[in-house]
């Protein structure tokens, strides 16, 4: 008899409707979505622009509250401090404080994760070495290239030794070498037992790193399954589920 892995993230019938000033509904961003992310797996949320991926991620992070349904992180509400203690987040853009150096940035986030000063310094050195930024540890991140800033952001997501890492478009804006490095790192973290929830437009990247994917379209789940069991490439599977290219901005041009 095998033990079912623990569900780290669960969404149960979750919807999110954005409203205007007069509380009239304007957009249904997520519609009755249910999913479960198991401990130790790399779970990919895929979908075209506006499909509800970022809204779903923000509800999981507690930055947005669902209009209906329930979000649980480690069995807790996503806004609880105990749940946030076990979470690391890499946003789509790096959003770093430009006046802090790379080392100060990591020490700042280590402090927010309540790491003692000495451990924070050790963890900072470790992570800077891991993302290859030891040489520029004392340079303000405002002067960093996009790729370097991305690596600092990734390191700061990992600084509190999270059990769940949420990555929003982790390879966005990276060159092919950096993209490969990030993918290698995510795979290594997953091998180490970390649960990873990622969104991506890059189907090839998702195919490389994800154990399981869910495809969203218009806020609804249109398909879910293990990448290894698709029987086709993720791109073909995606286009079949999302409806070829009609949902993309280029569709009118491509169809002549």
């Amino acid at each position: 008899m095998t033990m079912e892995p623990e569900i780290v993230v669960s969404l149960n019938g979750v919807s999110k409707t954005f409203r205007d000033f007069w509380l009239r509904p304007t957009v249904v961003a997520v519609d009755a979505l249910s999913l479960g992310v198991r401990r130790g797996e790399v779970f990919g949320l895929l979908g075209p622009n506006g499909s509800g991926k970022s809204t779903t991620i923000k509800m999981i992070l507690g930055l947005l509250s669902p209009s209906a349904g329930e979000v649980r992180l480690f069995g807790l509400g996503p806004r609880s401090v105990a749940a946030r203690r076990r979470l690391g987040y890499l946003p789509e853009l790096s959003y770093l404080h430009p006046f802090l150096t790379a080392a100060e940035t990591l020490r700042y986030y280590a402090g927010l994760c309540s790491l003692p000063r000495r451990e924070a310094s050790r963890r900072t050195r470790e992570l800077l070495a891991m993302v290859g930024l030891e040489e520029v540890a004392n340079r303000p991140v405002g002067g960093f290239s996009k790729g370097m800033a991305r690596r600092v952001a990734l390191a700061s997501a990992l600084v509190g030794r999270p059990e769940l890492l949420v990555l929003d478009e982790p390879t966005s804006g990276l060159d092919p070498i950096s993209t490969k490095e990030v993918k290698t790192l995510v795979k290594a973290l997953a091998r180490g037992g970390m649960t990873v929830l990622t969104t991506s437009h890059m189907l090839a990247d998702a195919e490389d790193i994800c154990d399981r994917v869910m495809i969203l379209n218009h806020g609804k789940s249109v398909a879910e399954g293990r990448v290894a069991e698709l029987g086709t490439s993720l791109e073909e599977f995606f286009l079949a589920k999302v409806g070829d290219v009609q949902d993309f901005a280029l569709a009118p041009f491509l169809k002549g």
Partner: peptide, 14 residues
């Protein structure tokens, strides 16, 4: 506005 606040809000900080 710069979206840095969300990075603090997802940390274990009240």
């Amino acid at each position: 506005a710069a979206k840095r606040l969300q990075l603090t809000m997802v940390r274990p900080v009240r």
